[in-house]
Amino acid sequence: MTRPQAALRRERAAYEPDGEQPIGGYLAATAAYLGGVGTLAVLARRTGRALPAPGPWDVALTAGAVHRLSRLIAKDPVTSPLRLPFTRFRGASGPAELAEDVRGTGTRKAVGELITCPFCTGLWVATALTAGQVLAPAPTRLLCAGLSALTAADFLHFARVAAQQAVGDDG
């Protein structure tokens, strides 16, 4: 074992002696993310795309889209086949959302953690939508509008259920 390898192992053991955290998987995910961002930046530059100057409405529209798409990926029953290799089904966790446990070790566990966490997935979704706003602004804006409308509709569903429960109506 080389000196750098030994030093890395000591630091890893000092960080987390049990070794349950998939540090190598996290490094792979970080490398994939940074590689993707770098590729998108090169693509934008080579195609001569100008960077947009998003206003508050664009940020709100994108935030609604990121919220909905990240929850769709991480929690929706319909997307559970995408999570199946990395998770174990536990049951429902809320309206139209599943509870799943991450399974596996190493990169498999790291991917499972990424795709079952809407906060973690949100970074990737926000990056993809931001790249879309540079590379394909009109379709991306339409997608963001649709997903934001769905986000607003979700909140209206919750408000209606709360109002019905407050007055004792089941329908």
Rank of each mutant, 00 (worst) to 15 (best):
T79Q: 09
A145V: 01
A138V: 14
V78Y: 04
E11L: 13
L114E: 13
A128H: 05
T62E: 11
K75C: 08
R3I: 01
G106M: 11
L156I: 09
M1W: 07
A92H: 13
V102Q: 06
E20D: 14
G106R: 12
A152T: 10
S148W: 00
A99E: 13
P22A: 12
V37I: 06
G168P: 07
V134T: 15
P17T: 12
D58M: 02
S80W: 09
L43G: 13
G146H: 04
E11M: 08
H157I: 13
A152Q: 06
L147A: 15
A99N: 12
E113F: 01
S70T: 06
G106E: 09
G171F: 14
E16F: 04
D169Y: 08
G146E: 01
L82M: 11
L69H: 01
R9Q: 13
L123K: 05
D101N: 10
T87W: 03
L27K: 10
E11D: 08
A63D: 02
G64H: 12
K75H: 11
D76L: 05
F155H: 15
V102T: 02
A149H: 00
F158T: 14
T62R: 12
C144R: 05
G104S: 07
A29F: 11
T39F: 15
P77F: 09
V125Q: 03
G122H: 04
G36R: 02
V111N: 09
D58A: 15
A162E: 05
G48E: 06
Q133H: 13
W57D: 15
V161A: 15
A92L: 15
P52L: 10
A96G: 12
T79V: 12
A74H: 06
P85T: 07
D76I: 04
R3N: 04
A50N: 00
V161R: 10
T121C: 06
G122V: 02
R103M: 09
D76N: 15
V42Q: 05
S93P: 01
I73W: 05
V37T: 09
R90W: 02
R90T: 00
R12P: 00
L98P: 12
V161S: 14
R49I: 04
Y33E: 00
Q165Y: 07
I23W: 13
A7Y: 01
L114Q: 14
P22L: 03
V111R: 11
D154I: 06
T30V: 07
A162Q: 04
L143Q: 02
Q133D: 11
L150M: 10
G19A: 05
M1A: 11
G24Y: 07
A41W: 09
Q164A: 08
R68G: 06
L69I: 12
T30I: 14
V125E: 01
R90G: 03
V102Y: 00
A159V: 01
G35W: 07
V134S: 09
G104F: 08
R46N: 06
R71N: 10
G104A: 06
A28Q: 01
E97D: 04
E16P: 00
A152K: 03
R71F: 02
R71M: 06
P118L: 03
A149I: 00
T87A: 11
A162T: 04
T39C: 09
A6Y: 04
R49S: 13
R12V: 05
G55H: 02
T39S: 11
G94M: 01
G24L: 08
R90P: 02
A138E: 15
S70I: 01
A126N: 10
P17G: 06
A14R: 14
R68D: 10
A6K: 14
E16D: 13
L129F: 04
P95Q: 04
